[in-house]
């Protein structure tokens, strides 16, 4: 459970990226499946070759940005439909990721990573004892608090940055592009570049998340991005359903919450005897399906009941507001 929250916070960065493309730009960007691994691969290869893990993570972020920019260019300049642009980039990235790693899996177990670095500093400062004391009444003491706290800080920083960006002049144009694109052009904003920039930023976050997941899990694997977009969507949809999305700041909170809740649901689901690790993707798909279908069905049911009530009222001869209309001759 504790590790679910840790993982949730790392994946929250990816989910915030998906929120940016899917909700803000209204662009279902499948590049995510590829750019997540690109981030992981770039970071892993650099770390194995002795680079500073923080610098390696930053490089991963830039690589993700480049991937997103390419998807954006495919769509805006190449006039390819959004889904197809993303799929093309995703497939292309699969090969590119293999090239970056030179093989399908790069282990990081004995390497110095962002995670080991932070944990070491944390130990030296003796912070674990302090945190354990804080929750001593529960009798709960995790391996270390370092990952949880540092990843929470990363997620919050990304959230803060995103909240701020979307309130700037550029950010308002970015949001309007996803809301009413033709209108944005009539107010002299270049929607093409806004989409390219937005997708770049979205995939930069996804790649950063990939780099952190690789360092947290101790490996980068060419298959680790499969279905990542669905996990991102699950986090966004669950978060919005549970915590609301009235404003951008609220929605970004919700997305982080959604990412954590998703990991918790998954952990609980996997405790069911019958289910195996391989079922994870199926469970994810089911969660997203339910989150999409259930609210609609409920709304439709409400509507049907409302109509039934109205018919009954009419049968009883009551006057219903709006039921009588005088058609005047025109």
């Amino acid at each position: 459970m504790f590790s679910s929250v840790e993982a949730g916070l790392i994946y929250a960065v990816m989910a915030l990226g998906v929120y940016l493309s899917f909700r803000i730009l209204d662009f279902p960007d499948l590049t995510v499946d590829g750019s997540f691994v690109t981030g992981a691969s770039v970071a892993a290869v650099l770390i194995v070759n002795g680079a500073n893990p923080f610098a390696a993570s930053a490089a991963a972020l830039l690589a993700g940005f480049a991937a997103g920019v390419l998807t954006g260019l495919l769509h805006t300049k190449g006039k390819i439909n959004p889904l197809l642009s993303g799929i093309l980039m995703m497939i292309a990235l699969y090969s590119i990721n293999l090239r970056i790693m030179g093989k399908s899996n790069v282990p990081l177990l004995q390497q110095e990573t962002v995670i080991t670095n932070i944990t070491a500093v944390w130990r030296q400062a003796g912070l674990d004892a302090a945190f354990n004391q804080l929750v001593s009444f529960t009798g709960f003491a995790p391996r270390t608090w370092a990952v949880l706290v540092s990843m929470a800080i990363v997620a919050l920083m990304v959230k803060g940055l995103l909240d701020w960006l979307l309130k700037t002049e550029v950010g308002i144009a970015l949001r309007a592009t996803g809301d009413n694109k033709p209108m944005v052009a009539s107010f002299s904003a270049n929607t093409d570049w806004l989409i390219v920039f937005g997708l770049g930023l979205s995939n930069a976050l996804v790649a950063l998340s990939g780099a952190l997941v690789a360092q947290y899990g101790g490996f980068s694997d060419v298959g680790m991005g499969i279905g990542m977009i669905v996990i991102g969507l699950a986090s966004v949809i669950i978060g919005e359903a549970l915590f609301g999305a009235r404003s951008v700041a609220r929605a970004t909170w919700a997305v982080i919450g959604g990412a954590i809740v998703y990991r918790l649901i998954l952990a609980l689901a996997l405790r069911v005897e019958f289910l195996e690790t391989g079922d994870v993707k199926l469970i994810t798909a089911l969660i997203v399906m339910m989150a999409l279908v259930v609210p609609n069905t409920l709304a439709a049911q409400k509507e049907r009941q409302r109509k039934k009530r109205r018919v009954r009222q009419l049968e009883r001869g009551e006057t219903v507001a709006g039921a009588e209309t005088n058609y005047k001759s025109v």
Binding site: L165, K167, T168, E169, V170, I172, A173, F187, S188
Partner: peptide, 12 residues
């Protein structure tokens, strides 16, 4: 911002 360059300063 129709007549101005959009920047990273606060929109409102």
């Amino acid at each position: 911002n129709r007549t101005k360059r959009r920047t990273l300063s606060l929109g409102v």
